[in-house]
Structures are given as structure tokens and as C-alpha cells.
Amino acid sequence: MINGSFFDGTYAKAKHAGWLWILGQNYALIKQDPQLTHIALYNTKNQQIQFVDYQNFTPSRSNEVIEFQSGPIVVENSQVAKPYIAKSLNGSAPYTRSLLAVTDNRTKYFITVRKPIRLDDLANYLLSLEIFAGKRLDVLNLDGGPSVALYSRELINLRYNDTAQLPILLGAR
């Protein structure tokens, strides 16, 4: 599991910041915020994921999708997303980070960066990795700073800040 995205309020009374649609239920409306640039759309039927600029987004209202707002987008179509990073409130400052990466709209990666880094430097680093060579890469920032956390039941050495109280989590099995 990884911290899911930005939230409003306190840890004790947190709510998701921005659009949140889960399998036919709407939990939060779209929020205009320079951080929350994109909607992650996950189709549970074909298991594809894509990131759409929230200004061009039309809610699906489907029972087969999960949609949530986060950002900024860091890499879009294998290019550093400089305009989104530049508008971000914390994109040019070094922070620990958590991100969701997708190659060719199908293979998903949770990324936790434990060393503080700027988003543009992180984007360039990710694009240099052999694992992403020759593939379309899209990367969405989920959060940064003290909310960055990763929990793995089986890979204990990967855990990071796993005792943090976080209101929003993403998980895979």
C-alpha cells in the first residue's frame, strides 16, 4: 500500500482533495488547485489506467471505474511535464515523493522516493531508467513530504514511514 493522494483537513478528519469516484459512488468534487492537475482513471474491466488533465475531464459515472484527482503530472507521454511541474506549489522544491507510474496504459508502478528531490529532476531520472526504455511512460505525483509512506506485507525492507496515520491509501495485491 502507498499513500493515495492529497487530502483536506486533519489526519483525524481528512477527506480526499479533489475528484473521487469509486465504482459508481461519488465521494468528492473536482477541485481547482495547481497541485491537482490530473484525474487518474482506472478501468477495472480492462485494467487500463490513464491520466487526464482535470480541465478536459468528463466523469464516466461508470460502475467499472475508479477516478481520483491528484498531481501534478510529472511525465506525460515519455516527456517531462514542465508546464505542470512549474505551476505546482512544491514541484521545484526537494521533497520525498510518492508517485503512480504507468507504461503503455497497462503496467502500473508505485514509486516511493525517500530522498528529497525536485519533480523535474525526478522526471529526468525516471526517464533514464532502463525499465521504462522504449515504452510510453506517464507518471503522476501522489503526494510528498511527511505523507509519503509505503507498506509491504511480504517485502519488509521496502517499508517506509509505514506507521504513519494516513487517510487515503492505494493498494495492490
Rank of each mutant, 00 (worst) to 15 (best):
L126E: 02
K115A: 10
L119F: 08
D8Q: 11
Q47G: 04
L166T: 02
D53Q: 05
N77L: 02
L119Y: 10
I30V: 10
A164G: 09
T112V: 15
L20N: 03
G24L: 12
V80D: 01
G171P: 03
P72H: 03
N3R: 04
E154Y: 08
A93Y: 10
I131P: 00
P146Y: 06
P59R: 05
S78G: 11
D143G: 13
I66K: 02
L129E: 15
T10N: 09
K87N: 09
I168Q: 04
A93R: 05
R97W: 04
D104W: 06
Q165N: 14
S147T: 15
Y27P: 03
V65S: 07
Q25S: 14
F7N: 01
R173C: 08
W19R: 03
P94S: 12
S88D: 13
I22L: 10
R114D: 09
T112M: 13
I73W: 00
Q165A: 14
V148K: 00
H38E: 11
A93D: 05
F68H: 05
Y95G: 00
P34L: 04
V113G: 06
Q165M: 12
I66R: 05
I73P: 00
D120L: 12
L122N: 05
L122W: 05
I85M: 06
S147Q: 07
L29D: 15
Y54T: 03
F132Y: 14
D33G: 03
T112I: 15
L29Y: 07
G145K: 06
S5E: 02
S62V: 05
S60D: 04
Q25T: 15
S128F: 09
L158F: 13
T103D: 08
D138F: 06
H16C: 05
Y125W: 11
I117A: 12
R173F: 13
Y160V: 04
N26H: 15
P167S: 10
F51P: 04
E64I: 07
S62W: 03
Q50D: 11
V148T: 13
P94T: 12
T58F: 07
P34E: 02
L126G: 00
L23P: 01
D120K: 11
F110Y: 15
A81M: 03
N105V: 05
I111S: 03
N90M: 13
R136S: 14
A123L: 12
P72E: 04
G18P: 04
A28G: 06
L158S: 13
D53A: 12
N3V: 06
G4V: 02
V148P: 00
Y42P: 01
R114V: 11
K45G: 03
D8A: 08
A28K: 09
L29W: 02
K45I: 12
